[in-house]
Simulated scan of single mutants.
Amino acid sequence: MIRAVIVICSSLLLILFASGCTDFVEPNQLAFVMGTAIDHVENGNIEISHQIAIPSQMNGSSKGGGSADSDSFLVMSAKGRDVLEANQKIQRQMSRRLLTSHRIVVAISEEFFSKNDVGNLFDKLGRDPANNQRDITIMVRGTNAKEFLMTKHPLEHLSSIAAGKELHINGLKNYSTRQFIIDSVAQEHRTIVPVLQINNTQANKNRKDQLAALSGYAVLNKKLKIGGILDDTEGSRSAWMSGKDGMRELTIPWKDGNGNLSFRLTHHKREITSTSGNTPKDVLVKVRAQAYLLENTTQLDMSELDNMLEVQNQLNEQVREDLQLTLNKVQNWGTDVFGIGAYLHHKYPTWWRLNKEDWDENFKQIKVTIQVNIQLKSIGATGGQVKRGL
């Protein structure tokens, strides 16, 4: 009995020692990286910058990041031949271990996209298990990406936090680093990246602030070079046709030119079909959504059924024209961000094997038509405009 107790105790001690974390690091020994910037360097190297939170300055104060008495972050930078080498140079300047698993954004400058092979970056981001790949990949236009990290924000402690919230609020949930890596290696479709641009904004009458705001989307070709830039509205349309949510609000003019109608769109859907046969002839992109009327500056009384149906038809026709124009624009660039190639791969495997190698050029020759089905679900709390007394 005594021998059995000794054996059990010895086994428990061995288990405790074996399960101990030999490389455990306390939170006060970690440097939390909230954003990473990647910039071009002329000699072929790259510059990596990390926005690191200073927890002692992020005390939940009611003041915004731009109003705080002291900075709530620091930006550390280094140059190297690849991501790891630059990271190690930054680490040697730090008294704490860099931790990237809480990172919100990876910001890449427009110049880096133009002059470097972006695909090389994502070997490190995809291979290293320390990267969670939930962070969002964005392109910074008009300046270097490091400048974005160093910009303060009047409402948030960090510009990376502000950018993450802005993208989330605007429905951009499918632009993670993981999704970027998946799209970049696929033969059937191309990548689309949100674009941020730093603008001078009059936050109050005494001060102007630099704010990084969503300004559009970059469409990348097979080599991850910029095929074209879409503005915010065009990018939202492309996201809808790509099956990545899409535009939340839109305003259309009434057909007589007197007044406008504004809607909120929900329940976005996208489906791709084509005519039957052994080869694709006409490809049809079907989009659906539900619409809620939020503002009406026309003379229409929306409580009348005929007016509701007429507005719904006008909404569908206007959206169809706008989506078709955007699709034609992107198709002329040869950048299939809509997943049409993926559909054709599964629908016409024999045809796809003959056309996949030069898909960017072949995509330009495909006839693609848009079909829109938007259901008007609500006209709001009132029918016609509120009558004002004379």
Rank of each mutant, 00 (worst) to 15 (best):
A342N: 15
D82W: 07
A107S: 10
V386S: 14
E321T: 14
L74S: 13
T326K: 01
Q299R: 12
S276H: 11
G164E: 10
V283L: 02
A31M: 05
T369L: 09
I90S: 08
N328K: 14
L224F: 10
V287P: 02
S238V: 09
Q299K: 14
V41S: 12
G339D: 09
K124E: 15
V5Y: 04
N170I: 00
I252L: 06
S184A: 11
N87Y: 04
A289F: 05
G339F: 01
H153I: 01
A289G: 06
D231R: 01
N204H: 13
I38H: 04
H102Y: 04
G35F: 00
V195P: 01
G259Y: 05
Y292I: 07
A289H: 02
T279M: 04
K146G: 09
N200D: 14
M302S: 06
S262Q: 11
L196T: 04
L315S: 01
A162I: 00
L84N: 13
I108T: 05
A239H: 08
S303D: 15
S62D: 13
V185G: 08
K205R: 12
G228C: 07
G384K: 12
Q314E: 14
F112Y: 15
Q314D: 12
Q197H: 13
Q331Y: 03
N45D: 12
H102K: 10
D245M: 12
M139V: 07
A86S: 10
A162H: 11
H40I: 03
N43A: 08
S61C: 04
I161W: 01
G341L: 06
S67Y: 08
N43T: 08
M247I: 15
S160W: 08
I226A: 07
G80A: 06
A86D: 03
W359V: 01
P194W: 00
N144L: 04
N120D: 12
Q93F: 05
G44F: 06
V185W: 05
Q197R: 12
T335K: 10
S72I: 02
D183A: 06
I8S: 12
L323Y: 08
S114C: 00
T191S: 15
A37T: 01
E317V: 02
N59W: 02
T251S: 09
V5W: 06
D209C: 04
K367Y: 05
L390P: 05
N116R: 15
Q385M: 13
R134I: 10
A18M: 13
M139Y: 02
A107M: 12
F112T: 05
D209P: 00
Q324M: 09
R320P: 01
V140L: 08
K269M: 06
S238T: 10
L261M: 11
N204A: 03
G235V: 03
A68H: 11
E357C: 00
G243Q: 03
A291W: 01
S242N: 05
Y292P: 00
G164V: 02
N43V: 02
